[in-house]
Simulated assay, not measured.
Amino acid sequence: MPSSRHIYLPTEIVVQIVSYVAVDELGRQKTLYTCCLISRQWYSAAIALLYERPQVISGISFKRFTETISPPIGTRKNTLNLGSFVHRLNLSHLVHHSSNSLTARLLGRIKENLEVFIAPTLTFSINSLPALSKCANLRHLDLALVHEAIPFTNLKQSISRLPKLVTLRLPQSTILTDPESSKIPWPPSLQRLQISGRFNPLLIPTFTWPQSLTSLTLKNCSLLSLANLSSLLSSPQLGESLKRLTISGANRGLTLDSINAIPAFLPNLTFLSIPGDMVEESFFFILSHTFPPLALEVLEFGLPCAELKLNFTTKTFLGALDNGLESLRSVGFAEELVTDQRLEEDEGIDEILQERNKRRRSQPGAESQDDEEIVGVYYI
């Protein structure tokens, strides 16, 4: 006759089991919830992981989450501070499922240990900034989907003292050259920045960059003419510190001359991604006469601005490899730009880059190479 007695497991074993469960991203939420229902012991082992990065992908899940984390006034509250368990919150799937006040209140409840926050489209507003300013452990802040116009000065003020913030993506409605904003410091540890929004051409010279910036993305910007882009990128500090630059095809006002100016201002880049149709023969002609050679290791021709074609020949590209692109080890093409002829020509490019990489690695004193680094041609 089977025994009805429960088998006791040491808490350390239960914690180990739950930690294995948490690795499975697809079934993580449901399984951890089930673990919490087994017993008090299992609840104490699983509850923190259950709320660490909640999956809030629908109106129903958001309602349940907010009612638990931030219950209505007058209702019975959980003795545990469940909001302190939240480390990552992605609200990008939500549209009309919240309100400005509810999002602000929710941020206030989870501020203690929040590390990653991806804001919703319609319900993140200036009301959320006071709570945001208290998220002292925040490392990644993504406001790229935010629709409401938030004054850049107010936003910058609220994040200026977040000591651990490394990555920031700004809203599309940002007016970046507000004179008052230049007086406010950037977060001290900010390294990766995505800029979206509008510039006042007359005030671009007043724009200041984060001191520790190493990666910059320009996406959904307006007025990226040669003069404006050159003025933005001509900062000596940026020329020294910036290692990665991505210019999306989703920008307005970008010209061929704008792209040609990049190597002159940013010779220390190791990664450059630019719209494939905004590069022409003159870009590689400039690189062929660039000395000393650029530090560039990865060059991507990303999604185009308008035309689904490349405006340069493989011969011209190869001509720059022995001059300004001596350090290049890989080149990427957006799949939308790939044709049968492109595939054939890419085989030749790939062979040259692979062979050159072998020679480089065989030289005395050559630095060891990360096995995950891509060498040759790849598609994005």
Rank of each mutant, 00 (worst) to 15 (best):
I7P: 00
S19K: 14
L26Q: 13
Q29F: 00
T34I: 05
L37H: 07
L37G: 01
A45F: 06
Q55K: 08
I60S: 12
P72M: 09
T79K: 12
L94K: 05
S101N: 05
K111T: 09
F117R: 06
F124G: 05
N127Y: 04
P130C: 06
L141D: 07
D142K: 02
L143S: 03
N154Y: 09
L155R: 04
I159K: 09
S160K: 11
L165V: 11
T174A: 12
S189G: 02
Q194Y: 00
I195S: 01
F207G: 03
T208R: 15
T208Y: 01
Q211C: 04
Q211T: 14
T214K: 12
K219A: 02
E240I: 13
E240V: 11
R244Q: 13
A264C: 05
F265V: 01
D277P: 03
M278L: 15
F283N: 01
F285I: 12
L299G: 04
F301I: 02
F301C: 04
E307Y: 13
K309M: 14
A320T: 08
S327K: 14
V338E: 07
L343N: 10
E345N: 14
I352K: 08
R356P: 01
R359P: 00
P364E: 07
D371E: 15
G376R: 05
I380V: 14
